[in-house]
């Protein structure tokens, strides 16, 4: 499923909203989430999961062509941990009470 398919699905279920508003809302949500992670703030959605940053320490890499060592600085990478309800539903378990 792509972003535009997701927008269509939501628009079909929120009949009182104009398609354009749903489209803008989904884009605003994703931008808000990206912005949050880009400023080091985690995201917590009960029943869905949480997004946080994991640190990757600096390391010595190599230029694959010349074999020359290159110092790579440490960095942060986004990490997602699925929540209980999502984990259960994806695995075909009954999640009605969680």
């Amino acid at each position: 499923m792509t972003k535009s398919e997701l927008i269509e699905l939501i628009a079909a279920k929120q009949q009182h909203l104009a398609y354009k508003d749903v489209e803008l809302a989904v884009k605003t949500l994703l931008e808000h989430m990206s912005e949050s992670l880009a400023t080091g703030q985690r995201i917590e959605i009960r029943g869905f999961g949480s997004f946080s940053l994991h640190h990757r320490p600096p390391r010595i890499g190599r230029n694959p062509k010349t074999g020359e060592p290159v110092a790579l600085p440490g960095k942060y990478v986004p990490h997602f941990k699925p929540g209980k309800q999502l984990r259960m539903r994806v695995n075909g378990e009954d999640a009605t009470n969680s």
Binding site: S34, L37, A38, T39, G40, G49, F51, L53, K75, Y76, V77, P78, H79, F80, P82, L86, R87, V90, N91
Partner: peptide, 17 residues
């Protein structure tokens, strides 16, 4: 299980943090 693979745009925004 569900896995999340961040896109290039999100990765580069976060890397700079």
């Amino acid at each position: 299980v569900v896995t999340f693979r961040p896109g290039q745009k999100l990765k580069s925004r976060v890397e700079a943090y």
